[in-house]
């Protein structure tokens, strides 16, 4: 066996070659290392023998003959499937949307129509006052916070409708 030092770009030693042999045959060894390994194999009979044996083994593992599936294999499997249960679950499954799109995901006070409409009225009022009295725009921005509950509920509704429409298209 050749015994060479492990330096970057230097020829490989036999242990280094054997270490990288599997990756080399898998085709996953880095390019420069593959070249060094190839050069080592060209010169080293022992490593080449090891390489040939491993390659042969890979070839055989890849082409192991298939064993035929026994007759009537499918019957007990197909007989055991709860088709009816799947069919019964289908409408429920179709109505299923991600948790964040379910109404209950938002706190009840945000969903409350009083809060939402009050927020809208407050926001519109603040923006109108800011415009009429020439107040700084930051006042209008603060007032727009009142729109948040209504926007959240609206976005959730749109998202839910989109998911359900997609599910209907798939089915």
């Amino acid at each position: 066996m050749k015994d060479r030092k492990n330096t970057e770009g230097q020829p490989l030693s036999c242990p280094e070659c054997l270490e990288g042999l599997q990756e080399y045959l898998d085709g996953t060894l880095e390019k420069q290392r593959s070249l060094l390994l190839f050069l080592h194999l060209r010169d080293c009979t022992e490593c080449r023998r090891e390489h040939d044996q491993l390659k042969n083994l890979y070839g055989m593992l890849q082409t192991l003959p298939d064993h035929p599936v026994p007759e009537h294999f499918d019957e007990p499997i197909l007989a055991s499937i709860p088709y009816e249960a799947y069919r019964a679950m289908e409408p429920i499954r179709r109505e299923r949307v991600p948790v964040y799109l379910e109404e209950e995901f938002l706190p009840a006070w945000i969903r409350s129509s009083v809060v939402r409409w009050s927020g809208i009225v407050a926001a519109v009022g603040t923006v109108a006052t800011t415009w009429a009295l020439q107040l700084p725009p930051t006042v209008a921005i603060v007032g727009a916070v009142g729109l948040v509950p209504a926007v959240l509920v609206a976005l959730q509704g749109v998202g839910r409708r989109m998911v359900l429409a997609e599910q209907r298209t798939e089915s």
Partner: peptide, 12 residues
């Protein structure tokens, strides 16, 4: 998941 019998047979 919709309970189509042919689909199970396909997977099999």
């Amino acid at each position: 998941k919709r309970g189509e019998e042919a689909a199970f047979a396909e997977i099999l």
